[in-house]
Amino acid sequence: MNIFIFGLVNSVILALIASGFALVYGVSRLANFAHGALYILVGFATWLFLNRLGINYIGSILLSIIIVSAIGAAIYRLLLIRVKGMPASEIIASLAIGIAIMELFRWRGFISEAYMLPPFVKGSVNIAGVFIDWQRLIIIGVGLGMMLFLWLFTHHTKVGLSLRAIAQDKHASIMSGIEPDRTAVISLAMGSALAGIAAVVILPLGNITVETGYMVLTNAIAVCIIGGLGSWAGVFAGAFLLGFTEILTAALIGPQWQMVVVLLFIILTLILKPSGLLGRQKELEERV
């Protein structure tokens, strides 16, 4: 039961972390390596608004998420738009921004245990003999709510449909009147907002550290590689596979083996099915 509940929490955390990264990649074919930096940026920004400017908790959260969406949009508009279509340059540019943001915080001295966000609801509950704190339950709720929202958004709204269209065929989308740069800006703003939402629900479990940013990026990439880049179902499959594997490894073999097993999974995926568990096969796309 322990393993099930904490595996579930861990999986939802991974899905939340990866969903922003996957959204941006799925729509714009841009690997946003600043994802982890945006995640901790929201953490620190919320902390600053809360403790330095005295804005209430909800206000601080909303403000940080709005700011991070604007930053995400600006990153595309000002920088990535110039290197689009060149994958190596996109990765270098976005990683550079990410490192700049993260190291800026380290340089300004954001490295103490004081940086932490309070949980939304204090205390814990007993579910079938396992004590679990409210914050972890909230994470599950927000995570599942987010997945439902994203599904509805991408299947039933004009903007969502256009995001999926451009991910599948850019020229055909343009012919339907969709403007590719505008959709890319929307996807980066939304992806950044998702990173922000993940940050505010997950960070109360521990301290906000600069290293968290690097870890979040690594985890997001791991989930997407295993699940298959550009596939929603793949993101969830990857998150649950990794999430439970991590918890099982920690419980059965020892926590120090967690990372080893995760890396083994990535290597196995790349050897056996490089497109990921649910990555689409190209042959399906065209029938002439």
Binding site: H155, K158, A165, A172, S173, G177, E285, E286
Partner: peptide
């Protein structure tokens, strides 16, 4: 209406048409 059809393979028929009606 481009050469080799270029429909959206992962979207349903109805979604393809809805995307066409974007404007």
């Amino acid at each position: 209406c481009p050469e080799r059809r270029r429909i959206f393979p992962e979207s349903s028929t109805l979604e393809n048409l809805k995307i066409g009606g974007y404007l």
